[in-house]
Simulated scan of single mutants.
Amino acid sequence: EQLDEETSGINDSRLVTMTVSSEMKRNALHRMNVPEFCNLIEKIESVHESLCKDIQDSFQMPEVCSLWIKSKEEERKLPFQEKHIMQQASIVGNLENFGVLKNSLGRKPSKCEEQVEGKEDGISTVIEFGAGRGYLTQMLADCYGINRVFLVERKAYKLKADRSLRQNESLTLERLRIDIEDLNLNAVESLQGVPFLATGKHLCGAATDLTLRCCFPEYRKDSSEQSTANIHFGGLAIATCCHHLCQWKHYTNKKFFLDLGMAKEEFHAVTWFTSWAVDANHDSDFPDTTDCVSHLQSM
C-alpha cells in the first residue's frame, strides 16, 4: 500500500520516507560506471527534447509596473534590487497576459460600484507562499488593486513590506508564520469561499510541491477534513529555485515522471544535475553525448 501511495503522488508527503541529502545524491552519481552515466544523460536529453521544445521565454514589463517603479525611484522608496523588480514585474505581467489579473492603471471605481457589496473585478485575494519580506505582494497590491493578502512564511524578517501594506486602508493583511507543509487553507476562516491567487517568488526546492498540495487539498488524504475543501483556487504563478533540494517524497507528479520511463533513483540524479547549470562557464565546447563513453573513458 505504501508503494502505491509513494508512486501516485497523493498523500506521500506524510509518509515516513528518508530525506535524500545533496551528499547522498552526489555519492549515488559517483557510484555509476561510465555507460550507466551516459545512458542516463541520453535519456534525460531525449525526454527534454520531447517535452520542452515548444516552451518559450516570456519576460514581461507591464506598463502599470513600469510606472510604479518609476514613481518609487523618484521617491527614493525602492526597497529592493533591480533584478528582483524585473522578476516580480514579469511574474505579474504574465498573470495579466493570461487574464488572471486586471491592472489598476487609470481605473477609478465609481461610487455606485463601491456600494455594490461583493462586486469584484478579477481576483482580489492573494496568498504569497514563501513570502519573505512580501515585496511581490506589495507590487500586486499597488498595481492590481488586490485588497486581501495572506503572507505565508515560516521565518521572521526585518524590513518587511508589511508596514507599507498596512498603510493601505482598503487592504486587509494577514501574515501566517507557518511551514507550508503544515498549512491547511481550510482552517483559515477569512479565506473560506474567497477566490484566491497563489504566488511565490523563489520557492526553494520542495516548497513548490508543498504549495501545490496546499492549494489542492483534495489530492491529500492524510486528513478526512481535507476532503471537504471550501477554498476557491483562482490561479497560480510560482518562480522556483534550488531544484537540487527537491525530494521525491514531496514531488507531486510521480506518475507522470515514471510514465516517461524514468525511475525514482533517476529523479534524485536529475535534481542534482540542476546545480550544474549555475556552477561553471557553459560557453565552452563540450563533446556531444553520442561520444560520451569514449570521452569519459579517455579522461
Rank of each mutant, 00 (worst) to 15 (best):
L3G: 08
D12L: 14
S13L: 15
T19A: 09
R31T: 01
E36L: 02
F37L: 10
L40N: 05
I41Y: 10
I44E: 04
S50V: 00
C52I: 00
F59H: 11
E63I: 01
L67H: 08
W68K: 10
W68S: 08
A89Q: 06
N94V: 00
L95A: 03
L95V: 00
R107P: 03
S110Q: 11
Q115Y: 12
V116A: 13
S124W: 10
A131Y: 07
T137R: 11
L140T: 00
A141H: 10
D142A: 10
C143N: 05
C143M: 03
I146W: 03
I146L: 05
R148E: 09
L151N: 02
L159H: 12
A161K: 09
R166I: 05
Q167W: 12
N168F: 13
L173F: 15
I180R: 09
E181I: 11
E181V: 12
L183E: 06
L185A: 07
A187T: 06
E189W: 07
E189T: 10
S190L: 12
S190P: 11
L191S: 08
V194F: 11
V194H: 11
L197E: 01
L197C: 03
A198F: 06
G200D: 06
H202D: 09
G205R: 12
E218M: 06
E225C: 08
T228A: 09
A229H: 05
G234L: 00
I238G: 13
T240R: 07
H244T: 00
C246I: 01
H250M: 08
K255D: 04
F257M: 05
K264I: 00
K264G: 03
E266W: 04
F267M: 03
A269T: 01
A269G: 02
A269M: 06
V270P: 05
F273Q: 02
F273L: 07
D279E: 15
D279L: 15
N281Y: 15
S284W: 15
S284A: 15
D288Q: 12
T290H: 14
C292K: 06
V293S: 09
H295M: 04
L296N: 04
Q297M: 12
